[in-house]
Structures are given as structure tokens and as C-alpha cells.
Amino acid sequence: MNFEHLLKQVAFIHEIDKVKYILRKTKLFNSERNENDAEHSWHLAVMAIILAEYANEPVDVLKVVKMLLIHDVVEIDAGDIFLYDTNISHTNTAAEQKAAERIFGLLPTEQAEELIAIWEEFESGETMEAKFARAMDRLEPLLQNISNKGGTWKEFDVRYEKVLEKKGVIAKGSEHLWAFAKELIDESVKNGILAVAD
């Protein structure tokens, strides 16, 4: 038996363990501990399963889950860029594309091509699955910040207008979830955990 195919898969499995060490700025719900990318991806995947009924159109949930489980794998090489970073663009496609090709390229060709295509679909945000996956990616940190009484919004002086701008992506995947999120954002201002621009 030729183990070359399996050895490539195992090499990929070893490599993605590094996702567990990539810390995000956002903290766990009601916690002082930063979330890591693996926790984030797992949480989003479960959210997609639970909230799929709210997608603007029916979605292939398995495809959405695949997107969410692999979408941050590129951060092993490219690093995590904070959504509200004012110095670096959150969209670092050149570095991330190179990372996707290297990391997914560890896999046998057919699997590598499939995962690169799914990752690229998520990044382009054009299909309904990608739009819904991206909605999950924006909703989870919002819920975390609210649970942490402002969280990264307060820590990095992020204002209401910027939150609306960045979180508006949720509407492309789910108008229902955006209406819910918008209400939470507005309540955050009333509750003093999110400031408006001066």
C-alpha cells in the first residue's frame, strides 16, 4: 500500500494545529481570555448549523460549515488582522492567497483544489453560502463584545458608525440576523458600551 496520499493529509492535519495558537483581539463570552482562531472557526460552524433558517436564501449548510472551518487557516502564514485596524487593511488578499496555496497545497491535489476553491469563494463573498458564512463571521464577535461590556470596541475606541459599517455585511447573508444585530448595536449605545463619533 502506498501511504503517500495519507502522509500528505497527515502533514496538513499537523500544519493546521497552528490555528489553535493564533490569538484574536476578541475575547471569549464573559471572559478576559482572548479567543483563538480554532475556537472562532468551530463556533462559527456551529452557529451556521443553528442559524441556517435565517439565511436570505436556502444554503448548502455543509459547504458553509466547510468555509467557516477553513476560512482562517491562511492566518497561520498571513496572521490575524483586526477588523477595526486603522493601519492595515483587513483584506490582505496577496499574502492570504499565497498562504492558501502553501497550506492547502500540502494536501493531495484534488483536496487542495477543493479547499482553495471553497476558501476563495468565501473571500469573494458572492455566493449565498459565502454571504451567510461571512454573516456568521461578523455576528460572533459582535455578540462577544456585547457580553464583555464593549470588549474590543472600548479597548480600541471603535465607534458606532464604524461598527455599523463593518457589521452591515451581515445583511447580505441574513436580513433577519442583521435586524437583530442592528438592534443590539443600538442598545449598546444606549447602555454606554459603544460610543458614537464625536
Results as ranks from 00 to 15, higher is better:
M1N: 01
M1S: 10
N2Y: 06
F3I: 14
H5V: 10
H5D: 11
H5A: 12
L6A: 14
L6T: 14
L7T: 15
K8Q: 15
A11M: 13
H14S: 15
H14C: 13
E15C: 15
I16M: 12
D17F: 14
K20F: 11
Y21A: 12
I22R: 08
L23V: 03
K25E: 15
K25L: 07
T26G: 07
K27G: 11
K27E: 15
N34H: 10
N36V: 06
E39W: 11
E39T: 10
W42N: 09
L44K: 01
M47G: 08
A48D: 10
L51A: 09
A52G: 05
E53K: 13
E53P: 08
Y54L: 05
P58K: 09
P58Q: 12
D60P: 06
V61R: 06
L62H: 13
L62M: 13
L62S: 12
K63L: 11
K63F: 05
V65Y: 12
K66E: 15
L68E: 08
I70R: 07
D72W: 01
E75C: 08
A78P: 03
A78R: 02
G79D: 06
I81S: 01
F82G: 00
D85K: 01
T86D: 10
I88D: 05
I88A: 07
H90V: 10
T91E: 01
N92G: 00
N92S: 04
T93C: 03
T93K: 10
E96Q: 13
A100N: 05
R102V: 12
R102N: 15
I103V: 14
I103T: 11
I103A: 11
F104T: 08
G105M: 11
L107M: 15
L107K: 14
E114Y: 09
E114I: 10
L115T: 02
I116L: 03
W119N: 06
F122H: 14
F122P: 00
F122Q: 05
S124A: 10
S124L: 07
G125K: 02
T127E: 01
M128W: 01
A130E: 07
K131T: 00
K131I: 04
F132P: 05
M136C: 14
R138C: 09
R138Q: 10
E140Q: 11
N145T: 08
N145L: 08
S147A: 15
N148W: 02
N148V: 07
K149L: 12
K149W: 08
G151H: 11
G151W: 05
T152Q: 06
W153Q: 09
W153Y: 12
E155R: 07
R159Q: 08
Y160T: 06
V163K: 01
E165K: 03
E165A: 04
E165T: 01
K172Y: 04
S174A: 04
H176Q: 02
W178C: 01
A181G: 06
I185T: 02
E187F: 08
S188A: 15
K190W: 06
G192T: 00
A195L: 06
D198P: 15
D198Q: 05
